[in-house]
Amino acid sequence: MNVTLDGETVVKLQPVFGYLHRNHEKIAEGNSWLAAVPYTDRLDYICPLTNNWAYTLAVETLAGLEVPERAEYIRIITAELTRLQNHVAFMGFILADMGAWGSALMYAFREREKILDLFEALTGARMMCNYMRFGGCRCDLPSGWLESAGQLVEGFPAFLDEMEALLTGNEILLARLQGVAPLTPERAINGGLSGPILRAAGVDYDIRKVDNYGLYSRFKFRVPRGRVGDCYDRFMIRVLEARESVEILKQALVGIPDGPVVNPKAKQRGFRPPAGEAYGRIEGPKGELGFYLISDGSDRPYRFRVRPPSLINLTLLEELCLGTKIADVMVILGSIDIVLGEVDR
């Protein structure tokens, strides 16, 4: 990031990308359709399961595959758990960006570890889950998993209360966040922002509600919105979204039906979708995560394009930072919540 300053005020800011450009798209175009799933884990490496879902959703749209009901429920449960741990980690990281390296991050990671334990029990890996498959999921839930997930979800609001007691009303946090870099809805839409920071600017747009992908239409949840779109709204929107995710999880853990977890008609190895193209997107924890796939009927994607929310959410970074102090730049960057694996791919 090249920042030009006048005293301590930012007058020009140019982000420089590419230091983690790992050629996801080129590698995926040289490998089979299935081999791209583990690579999607490593895009946004804080939330692998939502990445899996976005890719499989795009492939299912391309090939017209049905997903069994139980698999849809498992996807919703894992996606919302992912959203929880992403937002929790966000709260820790933004405090670290403000200079409070330590306490908040420790609390956040303590809770995150519990969610990672659930992922490990389910998929065998803490971070790189590689769990979803075309037309379903790789394996069924292990015995007792739903109970331990239920316990975690029961206890989660208490943790959020604890975190809020620590942070929300804190004088320093208010001084550092309130009124910093406000954003209007029109600019946010034109700049292509998506996810929590779009809603923090006051736009009512949640892809879970708009596209009704998965079975989200069956669940009752609210879409929180900010009023001025400053850093504080961007912080609070995550706290509120985490609470809504807990509500979704409670409903999903009760309502999950029995049945198969993968569509038996779906072929995994040597999968060849019909020629054509599809764009599939989900509401990831960081924003609209989309995959644009072109198939020429062969066993590997002709074009594999990731729509990275982290990169596109940075479009307005310069606009947000102009006129602020240099110390605010880190906070603004933290409030956008990026992951470099996804920015550079």
Partner: peptide, 12 residues
Amino acid sequence: ACCAIEMIATAA
């Protein structure tokens, strides 16, 4: 990259 998150987790 990804390993940095595990490094933070190790320190946390």
